[in-house]
């Protein structure tokens, strides 16, 4: 099977962020999406540590160690940016003032359930951050993740086995093999990464993928 690399996955997702959107990017791979927004679109990135209007990495010599995003990357502020405290940053999320959040996941179920904060491994500390706040108040939750776990086990399931971050919250899933939409009937195929067939992708997916 042909797997997209991480940059190609992020670039594919970025195509679906419309001009004028207010977007929160999760830690890790989702953070790459900002690099790939198509020319001509203005997107406002929100980071829960207190900044709306996150810009790219600072030029050499202009780094400010206290100006960071939620992934702890050094960032800059775009014209029109605003700074605020955490209670206000989370009011923006819960209060339905953002349009899209892009998150990573351990597991996604066909009914849109998301598991991305805790595993069943007792010695591995859980870490929730802002994920539960995002899924509580952001209308479109895009998941960006590898199609399968490192050991090859499926991540797109009939039912999540890990504790949920939110029930029925995921709207779309972008993987290295395909793009899926969550519908009342389950996962529906939006597109396949070039060079793959639905049969091949279905074979590494526990949940049924509707054509």
């Amino acid at each position: 099977m042909k797997k997209l690399d991480e940059n190609a996955m992020a670039a594919r997702l970025a195509q679906d962020i419309p001009d004028g959107a207010y977007v929160n990017l999760g830690i890790g791979l989702p953070n790459k999406v900002a690099h790939f927004v198509p020319e001509g679109r203005e997107v406002m990135y929100h980071t829960e540590n207190g900044l709306l209007g996150v810009g790219g990495a600072p030029a050499a010599g202009e780094e400010d160690p206290e100006l960071i995003d939620a992934s702890k990357n050094l960032v800059t502020m775009l014209p029109g940016a605003a700074l605020f405290d955490h209670p206000l940053a989370f009011s923006m999320m819960r209060g339905n003032h953002l349009g899209i959040a892009v998150l990573g996941a351990y597991q996604v179920a066909e009914n849109g359930d998301l598991a991305n904060w805790a595993t069943l491994e007792q010695s591995f500390p859980p870490a929730v951050g802002g994920a539960m706040d995002l899924v509580a108040g952001v209308p479109q939750i895009f998941v960006l993740m590898r199609h399968t776990a490192r050991d090859g086990s499926p991540k797109l399931l009939k039912q999540c086995s890990y504790p949920l971050t939110g029930a029925g919250v995921v709207t779309r899933v972008y993987t290295d093999l395909c793009v899926l939409e969550v519908t009342p009937e389950g996962f529906r195929l939006v597109e396949l990464a070039p060079g793959n067939s639905l049969e091949e992708v279905q074979a590494v997916t526990e949940a049924r993928i509707l054509a």
């Binding site: 999320m93 819960r94 951050g129 509580a136 108040g137 939110g166 029930a167």
Partner: peptide, 29 residues
Amino acid sequence: PQGTLAERIRAAGAGLGGFLTPTAYGTLL
């Protein structure tokens, strides 16, 4: 959850007895 943590701290400082949040509803937390 981070937003709940921030708001719980704010509530204590603002003299509130707590708040209702949709965050974590239906989850282990």
